[in-house]
Design a protein around this nucleic acid. Structure first.
Length: 921
RNA sequence: GCGGAUGUGGCGAAAUUGGUAGACGCACUAGACUUAGGAUCUAGCGCCGCGAGGCAUGGGGGUUCGAGUCCCUCCAUCCGCACCA
């Protein structure tokens, strides 16, 4: 077999690997552990496209590299198999989503296996599998049975809360709870009925059911979490979303806001992801202040981060949905306010956002009293203030805040200046933090920063407010009115949610005959027969998509364990993920929720770590690169790109699979587009060139490139290396198959190093210094690149090494065997075959990474570029052990240099060892 | 508007972190071998110039003997957030 036959080689070894369970990993090992995790895919019907494997290939290379380096590597794969598409397909066809899902997974696995990934498939998991969601339900129960103690700053079992309530009520409690939790004494608590007690506990539980404003998507018939809504539309499907009040299961993620924020400092994640999470959590420091209301007992409590500007308050604004609205509206204004509130309430998110520039609002008729100077301040209702943030009311400082400014202009309210550095214009406020405070009584003369501190102190002294930290983060809605998700292990007794006992788990998803909501508007589970716990109905909503993915990384450690979430030994050994590879689109969803659950499990002592992924790398998105042929308007005629300027044309999408190097296969095009079969083609240089544009990879634009086709044509090893060669892993880029030939050519050249005159022939001669230098140079560079994931340059390094060895006609075992080993993470099949041909009985996977010998890299002489006044002149060789002095001496006395110096004395000589000699005249 | 990232040949990209810019690959050009092949090999390939040489890392300015790299400023593209008080 002198010719490299990738088909034969790849299928042979894939079969071998599978039969011998080569990639099975043990939880018991003396080796250090390394855990490489890919974000598991949702198995969609479309199969993998060429963008999906990008991260998988990179993580597989790292896994294989770490194995060679002597680590015990956990590298699992599974499927996030609950989700909307399978359910919608079920609604249309009646086919059970489990069947669709199984089919899709089978196809995904086939595709993944064809790429030669070193996954331990014995650990495969699926979130929709009862043996997996049993533990998702188990965690749900733990969360339900916990509360957050702000004093200890961790979650605790609900029993400790009950003990405190028995003892002293909730007066001394410092806990995360609902806003409307009443203050009660121990006596009151003890006099509560069982039901009343349970209702109160719900206000503390880390997952709870409450009437909440939710994102309701009528088209999908379900609620969505904040991160599933983009610009007022659902992320999946792009349907409009409205705000609606509904009783919903929620997770009290807000209890963890601070820890989720500070935890970011200890993990090696990309800065943009950390920044997105920081913004999403949105911590801000400030104060809450009470404003009295004229002729009323009401007080308006506002939140501000700029208490230094309090003397610039010329009006107040409350949110339309705010509880203040009703009591503050006077009789005269009632009609107007109600009308406004109604309009505001019925506007969709989308309308509200697109209309953000239009300032609207209505006077309530009430006046607040400035707490420091006693001024009368009119109170307005306006929808630019949100009910959900802070207190739902603001003190408006028009000179310092643009929204307040716009409002003041529109309603002709005063705009007092409170800072000597403020420069406001006709249209713009100035929120400066420079300058000194003016017109502000006791704050005068202070800098804004000083004034903030003094203001807060004063407010606290007078007992009219408190220092306060606010977060943008909201509790996460946890229920979905869908079928294809984990059942929530809860039933209802007398309207109180009760947990299904552990020994009844998993609570299996029941069979139903139709997947639509019931006639009464209940979720699909309302159709299930016997969906009850000894006569008491189970919860009808299911868990959201992010439930299973919030903890799956712990399950891989011991995924077949049926008695435990995972064994202590397994978790103690694997600890956490060393490298997590996945897309940045999960920044404020999965990547935040999973940190939350990990911290929770850590608090309960179930897991050992409070951050589960040390290092995260985001692979870039692969975009589509659409090809276009230019059709002459009004004629059945197409024109090559370079000539289209002379015609009036319309670009027509062309299937990228019939275009090579931007040259169109015209015969294939005639078949692709039936109405073009008699078309004329105006060529340029005998070729028809297509234009191209970057678009999302989608069937619609005929720009989907399927990895199977490329594996068929070039083999998995070529595709793997080409995807890495494309550019830095973190970078998004359009897919372009141009250039794959170069990698294919490389592998054939590599192969031919081992063959001469048609047969495998390898020499046992000792290598020359030059050959050793090539090898060790490669070992060094590849190891460095693998450590910091510069996999694109490693491919280049291999190409250079193979080219050089090929030029040197080197076929020596001592060189080629180690080269095979360092290439094996990148091209596992071809190297496995070579390894076998070299006479090894075990897999190349079990080889160890060759030891780098720096001595082969050290040169006898070093070539220094020599420059005069910063201008490069030539390279001159110096002995490798030359000192700075001897170089100066040598360089200055060099005849050529003397000529450049033109007889002048050098003013300065700079020698950077191994780098440069620069002479300044 | 706020936050983040990125700008280098015809294209994808390198650049040991301040030291010969464009490695490696694609495309292209010329040649060799060929029972013409989508095989292989050799050479060329940033721009201007016959040449010596000059100009080049989004634009402008600065620091330095020396800047793709550091500083200031402007511009463009992409991504995220968006009435968060």
């Amino acid at each position: 077999m002198a010719e490299y036959n990738f088909k034969e080689v790849e299928s042979k070894w894939q079969k071998q690997w599978e039969e011998s369970n080569l990639y099975k990993v043990s939880n018991i090992s003396d080796k250090p552990k390394y855990y490489v995790l890919d974000m598991f895919p949702y198995p969609s019907g479309a199969g993998l496209h060429v963008g999906h494997p990008l991260g998988y290939i990179a993580s597989d290379i790292v896994s294989r590299y770490k194995r060679l380096k002597g680590f015990n590597v956990l590298h699992p794969m599974g499927f996030d198999s609950f989700g909307l598409p399978a359910e919608q397909y079920a609604i249309q066809t009646g086919q059970h989503p489990a069947i669709t899902t199984d089919d899709n997974i089978a196809r995904y696995k086939e595709q993944l296996k064809a790429l030669g990934f070193s996954y331990d498939w014995s650990r495969e998991l699926r979130t929709s599998d009862p043996s997996f969601y049993k533990w998702t339900q188990w965690i749900f129960k733990l969360i339900f049975n916990s509360w957050y103690n702000n004093n200890t700053d961790k979650a605790e079992p609900i029993e400790t809360l009950i003990a405190k309530l028995n003892e002293s009520g909730n007066q001394e409690l410092n806990a995360a709870c609902d806003e409307d939790t009443p203050a009660i004494t121990a006596e009151e608590w003890n006099n509560y009925s069982e039901k009343e007690q349970q209702l109160l506990l719900l206000k503390y539980r880390l997952t709870y059911q409450a009437e909440t404003t939710v994102n309701w998507c009528p088209a999908l018939g379900t609620v969505l979490s904040n991160d599933e809504v983009k610009d007022g539309f659902s992320e999946r499907g792009g349907h409009p979303v409205v705000k609606k009040k509904m009783p919903q299961w929620s997770m009290r993620i807000t209890a963890y806001a601070d820890r989720l924020l500070t935890g970011l400092d200890n993990i090696d994640w990309p800065e943009p992801i950390k920044e997105m999470q920081r913004n999403w959590i949105g911590r801000s420091n400030g104060a809450e202040i009470d404003f009295a209301v004229e002729n009323s007992d009401e007080k308006i409590r506002v939140f501000t981060t700029r208490i230094d500007t309090i003397f610039g308050t010329s009006f107040m604004v409350i949110a339309p949905e705010s509880d203040y609205t009703q009591p503050l509206t006077t009789k005269e204004q009632k009609e107007q306010v109600e009308e406004y509130v109604n309009i505001a309430r019925n506007r969709s998110e989308r309308e509200r956002m697109s209309d953000a520039k239009n300032v609207t609002g209505v006077f309530t008729g009430s006046y607040a009293i400035h707490p420091f100077n006693g001024d009368k301040i009119p109170v307005y209702v306006a929808d630019y203030v949100l009910a959900g943030y802070g207190t739902g009311a603001v003190m408006a400082v028009p000179s310092g805040d643009q929204r307040d400014f716009d409002f003041a202009k529109k309603f002709d309210l005063p705009i007092p200046l409170i800072n000597d550095a403020q420069k406001i214009t006709e249209t713009e406020a100035d929120p400066t933090k420079e300058g000194k405070i003016i017109n502000s009584d006791f704050l005068n003369g202070l800098s804004p920063l000083e004034a903030m501190e003094k203001g807060i102190q004063e407010v606290e002294n007078r007992g009219i407010g408190v220092r306060k930290i606010n977060f943008k983060l909201r509790d996460a809605i946890f229920g979905r009115q869908r079928y294809w998700g984990e059942p929530i292990p809860v039933y209802y007794e007398d309207g109180i949610p009760k947990l299904v006992p552990d020994d009844e788990l998993p609570l299996n998803l029941p069979k139903i005959d139709e997947y639509l909501p019931t006639e009464d508007g209940d979720p699909p589970l309302g159709r299930a027969q016997n969906w009850n716990y000894s006569g008491k109905s189970y919860e009808l909503s299911t868990m959201p998509g992010w439930a299973g993915s919030s903890w799956y990384f712990f399950r891989y450690m011991d995924s077949q364990n049926s008695g435990e979430f995972s064994s202590d030994e397994a978790r103690k050994y694997w600890q956490d993920v060393d490298l997590y590879m996945g897309g940045s689109e999960h920044a404020t969803g999965h990547l935040l929720y999973s940190r939350f659950w990990t911290k929770f499990l850590y608090d309960l002592g179930i897991v050992e770590v409070d951050e589960y992924a040390r290092k995260l790398v985001n692979q870039g998105m692969i975009q589509g690169r659409s090809s276009f042929a230019y059709r002459v308007n009004g004629e059945n005629k197409y024109v090559s790109k370079a000539l289209k300027g002379s015609y009036s044309t319309t670009p027509i999408h062309v299937d990228v699979n019939i275009v090579k190097d931007d040259i169109l296969d015209i015969e294939a095009f005639k078949k692709f587009k039936s109405d073009a079969k008699d078309a004329k083609f105006i060529l340029d240089n005998n070729k028809f060139e297509c234009g191209w544009e970057v678009e999302k990879m989608s069937k619609r634009w005929f720009n989907v490139v399927n990895p199977d086709d490329l594996v068929e044509r070039y083999g998995a090893d070529t595709l793997r290396m080409y995807e890495m060669f494309l550019g830095p892993i973190e970078q998004s880029k359009p897919w372009n198959t141009n250039g794959i030939e170069g990698v294919y050519k490389f592998l054939r050249k590599f192969w031919s190093l081992y063959f001469s005159t048609g047969s495998f022939r390898i020499s046992d001669e000792s290598p020359t210094k030059e050959e050793l230098k090539v090898l060790h140079g490669a070992i060094k560079k590849i190891a460095e690149d693998a450590e910091n994931l510069s996999l694109n340059t490693s491919v280049s390094t291999f190409m250079i090494a193979v080219n050089e060895l090929s030029t040197l006609k080197c076929n020596k075992r001592e060189i080629l065997e180690p080269l095979t080993v360092i290439l094996s993470p990148f091209a596992p099949h071809i190297t496995e075959e070579i390894w076998y041909l070299l006479g090894n009985k075990t897999s190349v996977v079990d080889a160890s990474y060759p030891v780098l010998e720096e001595k082969y890299l050290i040169e006898d002489t070093i070539e220094y570029p020599v420059s005069v006044n910063g201008k490069m002149r030539a390279k001159i060789n110096f002995p490798a052990d030359a000192s700075k002095e001897s170089i100066e001496e040598g360089a200055l006395n060099n005849e050529t240099i003397q000529k450049w110096l033109d007889g002048k004395e050098p003013r300065k000589v700079i020698v950077v060892p191994k780098k440069i000699v620069n002479i300044v005249v």
